[in-house]
């Protein structure tokens, strides 16, 4: 009797969301992992093929270069986004009277999607800067940054920092304002300089905000797709393809569903591992209060 009632409650409250969650997420996930061991061509499977999809993926030199490019992108964007975001958070929590006004502005790039900002910045790099460079004779911008692999990398980074630092700023603001004022006052009375207070009091006490912001940027870096498509489209010559775009191209443009899905599973494992390491390392720095 009791279990029947419990069952009814389970179905009423959890039935629909869990069913949708399973259909949309769990089933394709398990299915996709299974497909990588078969000769799946997007429509049907006839036999198991072992690890051959994985060996094929790793024999693909463009996959390796994509992985290297993505790793570099994730590391650089992680550092810069968080450094800038933390700086913004400090400005916005300072004594300035215009701080709310500034906060509004810093967050605005976050409102627009990757495609829109990709098109905006493509205009800036391809047209605006080039036109100005020719007019005033600036060597650096005479040729569009998006035509050159190294400069295109920095273009991707600039746009990513511009877009996501506002969001991370809010995460850091939350951390900064959660510090009790009596601790800060005590440090001031003890004569600690603002820098000293920042490094020995504020940062350790808000370590949780760092854990979250680092996790979000790490995940965002690996999953970046929109900016990549809209800004460089992977060009020149597929040298600026991040992993998401690479998988998309492999599967949907070239029809290699087997290797595309294997690469996607590899991507999942890398993200999961990186996130696990990052969270457990940064958790160690969190101070219990």
């Amino acid at each position: 009797m009791k279990s029947a009632r419990a069952m009814k409650k389970f179905i009423k409250f959890a039935g629909i969301p869990l069913a949708i969650f399973s259909v949309v997420l769990v089933v394709p996930f398990v299915n996709g992992a299974y497909y990588t061991f078969t000769d799946w061509d997007g429509f049907e499977t006839t036999k198991l093929v072992g690890f051959s999809n994985y060996t094929k993926s790793f024999q693909d030199p463009t996959f390796w270069s994509t992985l290297r490019f993505t790793a570099l992108f994730v590391v650089v964007s992680l550092i810069l986004v968080n450094a800038v975001a933390f700086g913004l958070a400090l400005i916005v929590t300072s004594q300035l009277r215009s701080k709310n006004f500034l906060r509004t502005f810093f967050f605005v790039p976050n409102l627009v999607g990757g495609v829109v900002l990709g098109v905006i910045w493509q205009f800036i790099f391809n047209s605006a800067l080039v036109a100005l460079a020719n007019k005033y004779d600036w060597e650096l911008f005479k040729q569009s940054w998006l035509q050159d692999t190294n400069k295109a990398f920095w273009a991707l980074i600039i746009v990513t920092v511009w877009q996501s630092s506002g969001y991370m700023m809010i995460v850091y603001i939350t951390g900064l304002v959660s510090i009790e004022t009596d601790v800060l006052e005590a440090s001031q009375i003890d004569g600690a300089s603002p820098l000293r207070t920042l490094f020995t009091i504020k940062i350790p006490l808000m370590a949780q905000a760092f854990t979250i912001a680092l996790f979000l940027t790490l995940r965002g870096g690996f999953m970046a797709y929109d900016v990549n498509v809209a800004l460089t489209g992977g060009g020149p010559f597929r040298t600026t393809e991040l992993i998401s775009l690479h998988i998309f191209q492999d599967a949907f443009a070239n029809g290699n569903f087997g290797t595309g899905q294997s690469k996607a599973v590899v991507m999942f494992l890398i993200v999961a591992l990186a996130a696990l390491v990052q969270v457990s390392v940064s958790k160690r720095y969190e101070v219990q209060r």
Binding site: L25, P28, N31, A251, Q261, V265, M267
Partner: peptide
Amino acid sequence: VPFQALMIP
């Protein structure tokens, strides 16, 4: 789980 790991199946 990144969406890319699901999108093909």
